[in-house]
């Protein structure tokens, strides 16, 4: 049977993708940002840890979805997805290959479990999905695992509540557990941490709040489930709301987790870069 072996979260700042693609990761500006991923890069390629499939939770930044269609939760079910052209040409990264059987299984299971998923086939994937892959896997010829894209609306309000995200994570776990193929599956939550990309408050960073968020992913996810959107907005900036997506990862891991690794760095472009690796504890 398939099972969830670990959860990873990471910011997905577009400038990080540009730094990788342009070969700038060794520059003084970028070195400390990337250094915190060295541990994960080594850990994730060990045979006992390497995932067969990653369920990658991210948000589309007006790439596949424009104002015409705004799905709250959309699961990519096609066999593959091309990197999106976000205005400067597509990133030179491998095509994202899906485990379509698992994706369709999750879609069906979640709908039966009262999560009304949108199913999408034709979809280009933007920096929200490809930057975390670059951070964890570097620049391989092909991504070393299959990826199920799960896009969450955190752009047009209201986005889903943290509690809804957490519960979706639980439903995803049940879906994975009932898939007959023997697969190691990781769930990744991406985006955040504190950042604001607009107005006179742009550049807001709240390291204290971010660190408490990282702590409570392990110590007190119940607090995070109850956190209203207004707290993210006030404390972590208007784009900090992306952090609700981390709770899908957390919900998928079960009640108890163990923290294996974390990294926090200010700033990557406009953003507080956060990264954590968790594994289920029971």
């Amino acid at each position: 049977m398939a099972h969830i072996t670990a959860g990873i979260t990471s910011s997905h700042v577009p400038a990080i993708g540009a730094a990788v693609d342009l070969g700038n990761t060794g520059e003084d500006y970028w070195k400390p940002a990337f250094a915190g991923f060295d541990w994960t890069k080594e850990w994730i390629m060990k045979p006992e840890n390497k995932p067969d499939v990653v369920i990658l939770v991210y948000n589309d930044h007006a790439s596949a979805f424009d104002m015409n269609l705004i799905p709250t939760f959309a699961i990519g079910c096609a066999d593959e997805f091309q990197p999106a052209d976000e205005g400067w040409g597509p990133r030179p990264v491998p095509v994202v290959k899906n485990h379509a059987d698992l994706a369709w299984h999750i879609a069906q299971s979640c709908i039966l479990d009262e999560f009304d998923m949108t199913i999408i086939n034709k979809m280009d994937v933007d920096h929200g999905l490809t930057v975390p892959l670059s951070l964890m896997f570097g620049q391989p010829e092909d991504w070393p695992c299959k990826v199920v894209p799960l896009a969450v609306n955190v752009v047009t309000y209201p986005p889903p509540s943290g509690n809804r995200c957490y519960n979706l994570g639980k439903a995803i776990r049940d879906a994975v557990d009932s898939f007959p193929e023997d697969l190691k599956v990781q769930v990744w939550g991406t985006g955040g941490m504190s950042h604001q990309l607009q107005g006179t408050r742009a550049g807001l960073i709240n390291a204290e709040w971010d660190k408490k968020f990282l702590d409570d992913l392990t110590a007190d996810p119940e607090r995070l489930r109850k956190m209203p959107h207004i707290e993210y907005l006030r404390e972590a900036g208007s784009e900090g709301i992306e952090l609700v997506m981390w709770l899908i990862m957390r919900g998928a891991l079960g009640d108890k987790v163990k923290e294996l690794h974390r990294h926090y760095h200010v700033a990557a472009s406009n953003t507080a870069l956060g990264h954590i690796v968790l594994e289920p504890a029971e």
Partner: peptide, 8 residues
């Protein structure tokens, strides 16, 4: 941004 960003 390099010196910690804008305080809330």
């Amino acid at each position: 941004m390099l010196s910690g960003g804008r305080s809330p």
